[in-house]
Amino acid sequence: MTTAIGRDVGCAAARFYYGDNDAELNHVRFGSSEGVARIRARMAGYSNDELLDSGMAIGGSADSVCRQVERWAATGIDQMIFMFQIGHTTHEQIMRSIEIVGEKVIPRFAD
């Protein structure tokens, strides 16, 4: 983990986002309490490398994030949308992520 948009922070946020959390209504989102258990087990089963490699999470150093964004750019999309305010990511981590992406990622993808 080299920066505040670190792998661990990004991957923890992704796991929370995809359902590995304690929200009471998850049984509604995922069909049943068995559905919740299945989702949680699946998300917990992914390593950070797997989450990042599959594109389900983004995180790491600015250079690494640029490479991950480049993989999405190669699919033909014209906007990359980040969700930072997820799970237990702190306000300070979010502000730092916004700053780093602004300084070191966005300029590399200038139109």
Partner: peptide, 29 residues
């Protein structure tokens, strides 16, 4: 390529009396 930010205003527990308000105001920031 353009860049966007998205939020759904997540408020994970544990909650204190002002947690929801804090999340809202931080998201504005």
């Amino acid at each position: 390529m353009k860049f966007g930010l998205m939020s759904q205003l997540q408020v994970p527990k544990p909650w204190a009396a002002d947690t929801e308000k804090t999340v809202y105001w931080q998201n504005l920031e």
